[in-house]
Design a protein around this nucleic acid. Structure first.
Lengths: 250, 250
DNA sequence: CGTAATTTGTACGTATGTATG
DNA sequence: TCATACATACGTACAAATTAC
């Protein structure tokens, strides 16, 4: 009862908690892709044995990662690597409006262009790419009640997404995130957005069915996967409620 | 070693975990205001004794609430009720811009009007107030590099904030949240925002130093405290980057 | 300035509950 | 039915930070 092994003493003296070290290791296994989304990880007993620590400590490390959405556990089955934690198509304007007013809207997505481009400075800069690196470019329109309300253009590094062409057919049925995760095993961990105002150019105006030159809400967005790696730059143009627009003038 | 008390058996048979029940109770004590922000809660040993449970179980409940930002712990001192978890003045546009570009800006706040009003329908609706309930109205301008960039109008129910007049002097030095929390013990738990476009009316144009009729970013915001209780409705008008605005016309 | 008491944090080992296949 | 896996709970021990004496 009172005879501690030297190991225990050494571990206890370590300023970094054991559960935290394990937590980091597990996280790294996920981030490195050694374990892919959906995969079953070793059971807590196995982990405890292989690292020579108690199951309680393993449980603590795992539960933290479950909280951070890196893993999810099912009692009786095991613990699995989580799939992307941003389920909804990130369309902040729409999501917020829904949250705000309790409205519930569904969208039809239409892909109006797909191809490869380069030399678009803002995209390269946010994606940490060289100016002449090839980028996939996807133009989509989001439609509700047969009215287009958002038009957006996404840029993704071709190097990271070889063979993205094959997924084009899915882009109208699933979110971009889901499609990408399924094929490339890259979960979306974070995205940053910047709101502003733009005046619709000819292309945007046509996509949204308005006159060129009218003000639209512009949303720049960068999506990140593990290790703060940016993988998508997107610029969206959204119509806001015109009734509101005019109500505020007088 | 093997003689369990009937109590233990009963507890173990309960489908709702003990730690979770404690967690809910602690949460309720906070939400009800029995414990106010900054207050020291009973030590884990005391909690364990009074509820007749083990310290590990108490620790679990507490650590979850720490994670949810209801509490924070300091080793050797104790566990305290958290103060507002939204430290920055909620100026989403600016916060996002900072995150997005890594820019760092400080703001000067100027109060240009303070008074009591009623009958403003959107504010009453979001604040769940009757149309003729009295509301405090605060008009502020946010200035950076001696350029006004955001103008906003806040509405707060007078019933909830008796004596808010006394705080007006602080509104230019501290965030609205900090001032309110200190006096009324109400932490801000959540705020929802809706982005849109507005055309500057005369008042807004003057506050921002632009011509009336120009498009500005409008941000409607509702702040909530515990129990999903809304306590502030705010509408902001922000100038976005004008270079960008024009760059997009071509 | 050290020492003791208090409090949170970490870790272990054990026991039992509960879901899965 | 049974082995396996996660989930909860207890009790104990010690580490580390804080505070009062």
């Amino acid at each position: 009862m009172n005879n501690k092994s030297p190991d225990q003493i050494k571990l206890a003296a370590d300023p970094i908690p054991i559960y935290y070290k394990l937590q980091r290791q597990l996280k790294e296994s996920i981030e490195n892709g050694r374990w892919t989304p959906g995969e079953l990880i070793p059971s807590s007993r196995v982990l405890a044995q292989t690292y020579g620590i108690s199951m309680g400590t393993v449980q603590k490390a795992i539960s933290h990662l479950v909280n951070e959405k890196y893993l999810y556990s099912v009692q009786g089955k095991g613990t699995f690597v989580a799939t992307t934690n941003i389920k909804q198509e990130s369309l902040r304007y729409v999501r917020l409006r829904k949250e705000f007013d309790g409205e519930d809207q569904t969208f039809e997505i239409r892909v109006i262009d797909f191809g490869v481009t380069d030399g678009f400075q803002p995209a390269c800069s946010y994606l940490k790419a060289r100016i002449n690196d090839a980028l996939y470019r996807i133009k989509r329109v989001f439609i509700t009640h047969s009215e287009p309300i958002v038009y957006n253009i996404s840029y993704l590094p071709r190097k990271m997404f070889q063979g993205l062409e094959e997924l084009v057919g899915q882009f109208e049925r699933a979110t971009l995130y889901e499609s990408i995760e399924k094929k490339y095993g890259l979960p979306t961990v974070l995205n940053k957005e910047l709101f502003g105002i733009g005046l619709a150019d000819q292309e945007t105006a046509e996509a949204l069915g308005i006159e060129a030159g009218l003000p639209v809400l512009s949303i720049e967005m960068v999506s990140y996967t593990y290790k703060d790696q940016p993988y998508e730059y997107r610029i969206s143009y959204a119509l806001t409620n015109m009734r509101k627009l005019y109500r505020e003038i007088r």
